[in-house]
Design a protein around this nucleic acid. Structure first.
Length: 674
DNA sequence: CATGGTTTTGG
DNA sequence: CAAAACCAT
């Protein structure tokens, strides 16, 4: 149309296939493909070592694909994406910007700002859905409100009036814009000490969009068939292994959906019940990923605060020794320990085991769930803020449809169910390798002669249980009682109108991360590493802790906070080194993040919808009224600060919202106990 | 092999 | 809490 040149801004959509922003760029003329590395914008959530390793590989493959098509990827190192965009615009004369939507809290705010500022500068900005089957604002109940349980959400997704778009092919050719005056920065994703550990990753994983496609094909033609029966085995190679590919958008979920559905129809026609069921279960996990974006969009602080408000009075155990034992895989519960060692060594964990270790963390150790979530973030290859927040909230019992709060899972029992022969445990805990299966998941109950024969001395070369399950149950009961009392007290205070609720607002402030989340390396650990895994000390060293106050301060602060959000972020400037901020001393204290009731960002769905309509009308020149046109209408979620406290629907007890959802059973249980 | 009680699980 | 899986009789 304009003949001008457009920037296609790649983020977590590192593919050339089924990439609507890229397609739009190609359609409109010359293209500048851009990637901006601005990790400091992520606040606490500077990507971990393995995650950066993946990103590096993925970008390099994207670049070579783009080169084959006629252009190459411009890379910029930045601490402010908006400034970098303006800079690139200036040096290339681009007149348009295209990108695909992201839904994590930081991106929502940043992308909104991008739109505002660039539009002011006369740049046409359009954004697209490349990450989800349905945009969050499209999936609403009959009254036009967001769903609050996964099942109802997913049911609706699967019965939308239109199917997700079939995936688009890659462009045949890309005409490159003039980048002669826009040099790339070299991006540094690993330091010397990380390089050795990273080298090992390449043996197990092959990032990049074309490899993602191969992984998808391999999964669909292989393990998918028996997914329903195998999916609960800890060490089976029957998961899809697609999560890191999906995280970086190397693979389009729409493509996954369509291909898997095709297979399902096939199996259905053959009367293959197991296959059909497998596909449903696999799609459910795709659905959970969708739901995580949905939750993040509707409750953009769900990585910081429990969705159900009760937990804010829970007396978490602030014990860094527990935390350390958990990270090191020295809790005395073999399945938990095996999982933590695998995570440490490989950056990967089977989904079931993630649930096991997370549940142990929250319910047995009663450590604050955000610590665990942060550790996952730092160590997982497929670390994903939205998915992990959803997962931890589910485990912690703070979603209307999550596990009961009171429930404690028994690692021993889970051991025999996910690892019946103890192979997984033996693989990751060589010190237990000679223990017979009968005792492998509960060495603490094994007779002395069995232990001796296996060369185990409890408390010496393998720990006794850090907390017994009975003790954990008792402590949990006690903690709950305390929680209800505190809640009652607080409510009484509120009802007396003493302070208008402003007084004790520190109670909903997230507990700060511990000062030192680094895995300190003990000889023990090195000696005990699994055979054949030549690890380096540096494995999983938490790369950078930005112990700042909540990044959401940035999101919500514009009006009512004095400090600029940027000032609040202690940036790990030097890409490679962990940098401990000056105010680390304060971190023992809870960080004041939210000022009580006011000023949390709340997404205004109505506004977002209106924008959708406006934009799609504005867009009507570019083609027919297909659903794609409408859905690609350049919508970025619009948020507006609002007076109400966060997730009113979840927090307020007599809210009709929840009453309309009788299946929300935890909720009722919780509020009655008081 | 049915049956009823018990445990496990569920997003 | 309710459905499903499990187990003992």
């Amino acid at each position: 149309m304009t003949g001008g040149c457009s920037i296609v801004w790649f983020r977590r959509d590192l593919r050339v296939e089924d990439n609507p922003a890229l397609a739009a760029g190609v359609r409109s003329g010359k293209v500048i493909a851009l990637f901006i590395w601005a990790p400091e914008e992520e606040g606490h959530y500077y990507p971990g070592r393995v995650s950066r390793w993946w990103l590096k590989q993925s970008l390099s493959l994207l670049d070579s694909s783009l080169k084959n098509l006629g252009t190459s990827l411009i890379t910029k190192r930045s601490s402010d994406s908006v400034l970098s965009l303006l800079d690139v615009i200036k040096s290339t004369g681009a007149t348009q910007l295209f990108f695909n939507h992201l839904y994590d809290p930081i991106s929502l705010v940043r992308d909104h700002r991008v739109k505002e500022i660039l539009t002011e500068n006369g740049i046409a900005v359009r954004s697209f859905n490349a990450d989800l089957l349905c945009e969050p604002w499209e999936v609403l109940d009959d009254e036009g409100r967001p769903f609050i349980t996964f099942t109802s959400f997913w049911d609706r997704c699967l019965s939308m009036p239109y199917d997700p778009e079939p995936p688009q092919l890659p462009p045949k050719r890309i005409i490159s814009g003039d980048v002669s005056r826009c040099p790339s920065d070299t991006l540094v994703f690993e330091n010397d000490s990380e390089r050795g550990s990273n080298a090992l990753l390449a043996r197990a994983w092959t990032p990049g969009w074309s490899n993602a496609n191969k992984a998808l094909t391999a999964f669909i033609n292989g393990p998918l068939l028996n997914y329903s029966t195998n999916r609960r085995k800890a060490d089976s190679a029957t998961t899809s292994f697609l999560s890191p590919h999906l995280h970086f958008g190397e693979l389009s979920v729409r493509k996954v959906f369509h291909q898997v559905r095709i297979k399902q129809t096939l199996w259905a026609n053959e009367g293959n019940k197991a296959g059909e069921e497998s596909v449903n279960l696999f799609l459910k996990s795709i659905g959970l990923r969708e739901y995580s974006r949905y939750m993040s969009f509707n409750h953009p602080y769900s990585h910081e605060r429990p969705l159900l408000g009760h937990l804010k009075f829970f007396p978490w155990v602030i014990d860094e020794n527990y935390f350390k034992a958990w990270r090191q895989g020295r809790t005395g519960y073999p399945l938990v320990d095996a999982g933590m060692r695998e995570l440490w060594a490989t950056g990967w964990l089977h989904d079931r085991i993630r649930v096991v270790v997370a549940s142990f963390f929250v319910k047995v150790l009663q450590l604050p769930w955000r610590w665990g979530m942060k550790y996952f973030w730092d160590t997982l290859l497929d670390a994903d803020l939205e998915s992990d927040a959803l997962g931890w909230q589910y485990i912690s019992g703070t979603l209307p449809d999550s596990r009961e709060f009171e429930r404690i899972d028994n690692p021993e029992m889970e051991g025999y169910s996910f690892d019946p022969n103890g192979e997984y445990v033996r693989r990751w805990l060589p010190e237990l390798a000679r223990l017979p299966t009968e005792w492998i998941h509960h060495p603490y109950e094994a007779p002395e002669y069995v232990l001796q024969a296996a060369g185990i001395e409890l408390g010496s070369n393998y720990p006794l249980p850090i907390v017994t399950i009975d003790a954990a149950k008792a402590r949990l009961q006690q903690a709950l009682t305390q929680m209800w009392q505190q809640e009652a007290t607080s409510r009484a205070v509120l009802e007396n109108g003493t302070e208008e609720g402003l007084g004790d607002s520190s109670d909903d402030t997230p507990i700060a991360f511990p000062q030192d989340m680094q895995m300190d390396i003990e000889q023990e650990n090195v000696r005990n590493r699994p055979m054949g895994v030549a690890r380096h000390y540096e494995d999983q060293m938490v790369p950078s802790m930005t112990l700042s106050t909540s990044l959401l301060r940035g999101a919500s602060s514009e009006e009512q906070e004095e400090e600029s959000p940027i000032d609040q972020r202690h940036l790990a400037r030097d890409n490679n080194r962990a940098e401990v901020p000056n105010d680390v001393m304060n971190m023992e204290e809870r960080v004041q993040v939210f000022d009580g009731q006011s000023g949390l960002p709340q997404f205004n769905i109505q506004t977002a919808l209106r924008t959708t309509q406006d934009m799609s009308q504005g867009e009507s020149s570019s083609g027919g009224g297909t659903s794609r046109r409408e859905r690609d209408g350049g919508v970025v979620p619009v948020w507006s600060p609002s007076n109400s406290s966060y997730s009113e629907a979840f927090v307020s007890e007599d809210n009709s919202y929840l009453q309309r959802h009788p299946q929300v059973m935890n909720w009722r249980q919780l509020s009655q106990t008081g």
